[in-house]
Each structure stands twice: as structure tokens, then as C-alpha cells.
Amino acid sequence: MIRKAKALWQGTGKEGNGRLSSDSGVLAETPYSFKTRFENEKGTNPEELIAAAHAGCFTMALAFGLQGAGLTPTELQTEAAVTLEPDGKGFKISKSALTLRGKVPNCDEATFARLAGEAENNCPVSKVLNATITLDAKLIQ
């Protein structure tokens, strides 16, 4: 399976701007720029997209893990907070902090924590990130 996305950039790094598009059409000429990345202007940025990918991938991996254990979640909510920090003359993504809250009938804390940890280790996005990944998982009754 191969998934594709495209970036078009025009202008300098600080004054220029770009647009991101994905083959699925979910991203269609979505704006990004220095201001959307570093100054909170409306639009997206690579770190936000990585955070969305990590949250989505991890949560789906956990849903499969719970299913394999004979459990059906009523809700899994994950936030991924991706940290971008200076690195020499550039930047690096140093961390992705996952915060998970889940409602899973008939599941105990220990099983939930174990399955969440396995999902964090086995989700493809976790495997591709060269960053520290933390997980704060809580089962909500």
C-alpha cells in the first residue's frame, strides 16, 4: 500500500507559502506557511499533520488490540502533542506525547494499560518517528 501527498511551495522560507494536497482529497490545496507553523495563523503545518497521524494510527491500533482481547471500546479519545525544537541550524521533532482516555466495558486498568502500551509500540507512525514517545492512558468508567 502506498499513500501520497503533495506540497507546492512558492517564495522564501519566511515570506513564502505553500499548499498541501493528498490523493484522497482530504487535504486539497490546504495552506501552510511560516506563519501557520510558527505564529498560529490559520492553516496547517507538518507537525499538526504528524500529530493527527500519530493520534489516529495509535487509536486504531488500540482498537484492534482491544478487539483481539475480546473487548469493545465505546470511546477512545487520543491527543498527540508533537514538540518541535531547535536543533543546530534547524529544527527537529523531539517528542510526541499521547494522552488517551478510553471507555471500555469489562476492561480493567492493567489490561487497558498493557494493550495501550502495545498499541503505542506497534503503531506504524510510532515506529517511523525518531522521537521520544510518551503515553498517558486512563480508563474511564
Results as ranks from 00 to 15, higher is better:
T83Y: 11
E75L: 14
L49P: 05
F91T: 00
R3P: 00
E29N: 15
M1V: 13
T72S: 14
F64K: 10
R37F: 09
N45P: 06
T30K: 14
Q77K: 14
A61S: 13
L66W: 08
L129F: 02
V82S: 06
A61G: 10
I140T: 04
V125D: 00
G16S: 06
T72A: 13
A113R: 15
F38K: 12
G16V: 04
A61C: 12
E79W: 00
S33R: 04
G70Q: 08
F38T: 05
A81S: 15
E41L: 10
T83S: 11
G25M: 08
I2T: 15
K138E: 15
K92N: 09
E48I: 03
G13E: 05
A55S: 14
L20H: 02
I140Q: 09
A119P: 06
G65S: 13
N121R: 14
C123G: 07
A55D: 00
A5S: 12
Q10P: 00
C107I: 02
Q77P: 00
A113Y: 05
L98C: 02
E120Y: 01
T59E: 10
T99Y: 03
A52C: 09
Q141V: 09
Q141S: 14
V26L: 15
F112P: 01
N122V: 01
L98K: 01
L27K: 03
D87C: 12
E75Q: 13
G68T: 02
A7P: 12
N130A: 12
P124T: 02
T99A: 04
L8I: 10
S33C: 05
K95N: 11
E48K: 10
N106F: 01
Y32W: 11
P46Y: 10
T72M: 07
